[in-house]
Write a protein that binds this DNA or RNA. Structure first.
Lengths: 206, 206
DNA sequence: TACAAAATTAAACAAACGTTTAATTTAAAC
DNA sequence: GTTTAAATTAAACGTTTGTTTAATTTTGTA
């Protein structure tokens, strides 16, 4: 897939608007205006509004597995690698939160006809990688065996996204004046909380 | 707020459609058709499409605090009450998942002008109640002190919603043939996983 | 039965929607 | 410099959108 500068620009404008107002809440005219291009350029470049979203998803879902494997193969303890794994996941979903919001919303709608193969494939590969890591930790006696490995990702990612989707509420609870303060909170406090949560779950019998 | 049968019927139809296709993805004509009423009835009863959503939110966000307090005030151990608390929360958000999907999507959009006071208020009261419970458990020496109480709800609710928003993926991973199978998985496996997670976090030092 | 209020309807409204057209400008190749 | 392809434009296309209108039917009350 070769995309020129203008196409990439349109996609990033569309990402912002789709995440803010949804696919249906964003008109091609709004995208065109914000991207400073003629309306017809969207059909010209992408074919249609739906194909624009599909192009965006293919373009944005980069290969995540390599990053995971790199962290997992470090010469460190299981707990250290687990910490790094979670830090990587949170960093990634935070930087791609707009894309995830679009996916969460459209993917959970079973009647929508979008092609989510790339997303499903990436998710499955991440799951397999993490599962293998946890099982090795269990064999090594570091992690307990009584754990639902397929529900680890929902807890890690879900903790982040439930915070993100309720950001307006948490701003009234925690001092989060601007985007920088939110970034710091996510990469420090929230990441630490999730690391603590998963480490507790994986190491302590109840 | 007095709502007649027809109004309640329209609201429940709208809830389903809004959750499936979003606020902007659902037309008043679709709602009217599905609810088997004339299009004009929606303006007649609710004033506008936006006010229909606001009416729905006010109608659907019942007082959750009383249910929480009832469980917390049981004459049981802290860990038993914590289990019951989580079971109640999951049961509630699962039964109201459509409403929450609408809220997550519209609430995180800061430019949207909907009134979310009722939701924020309910969330704040739930937080205070849970915070008080955790602090009593800490004083009693059952729960550890090194915990971010404001991030407990994101982990509990987030684990559920990340599963729900990726249901199509988890159906390829776990045998979840129909809605009943999903209900059973949520109320047994997923609930147990979250109970185990929070109990580990609250009782074990890392 | 008579009357007033509430409920319901089909039709019409202007505005916005995604997409296509045909004409024009820009860029690249020779 | 000429030719060919790509990029860009304003305008128009037919639908669909949320809402309102005015007329009609139903319901409740006296």
């Amino acid at each position: 897939m070769k995309l020129n500068k203008k196409q990439v620009h349109i996609l990033s404008v569309a990402e912002k608007l789709f995440a803010e107002n949804g696919f249906d809440g964003t008109s091609v005219r709004t995208i065109a205006k914000e991207a400073d291009v003629n309306v017809a350029m969207i059909s010209y470049y992408f074919g249609s509004k739906e194909k624009l979203l599909e192009t965006f998803l293919l373009y944005r879902i980069a290969d995540f597995r390599n990053e995971l494997v790199k962290v997992i193969n470090q010469e460190k303890s299981f707990l250290e690698r687990l910490d790094n794994l979670i830090e990587l996941i949170i960093h990634r979903i935070h930087s791609k939160r707009r894309m995830y919001k679009i996916i969460h919303f459209e993917f959970s709608n079973e009647t929508r006809g979008f092609d989510f193969k790339a997303y499903t494939k990436e998710k499955l590969e991440s799951f397999k990688t993490i599962k293998a890591f946890v099982e090795k930790g269990q064999e090594a006696g570091v992690f307990i065996k009584n754990v639902n490995v397929e529900l680890l990702m929902p807890t890690v990612q879900g903790s982040y996204f439930n915070f993100y989707y309720n950001k307006r509420f948490y701003k009234t609870l925690i001092p989060l004046e601007n985007d920088v303060a939110v970034d710091i909170y996510v990469h420090q406090t929230l990441t630490k909380h999730i690391q603590q949560t998963i480490k507790s779950l994986l190491t302590n019998e109840i």
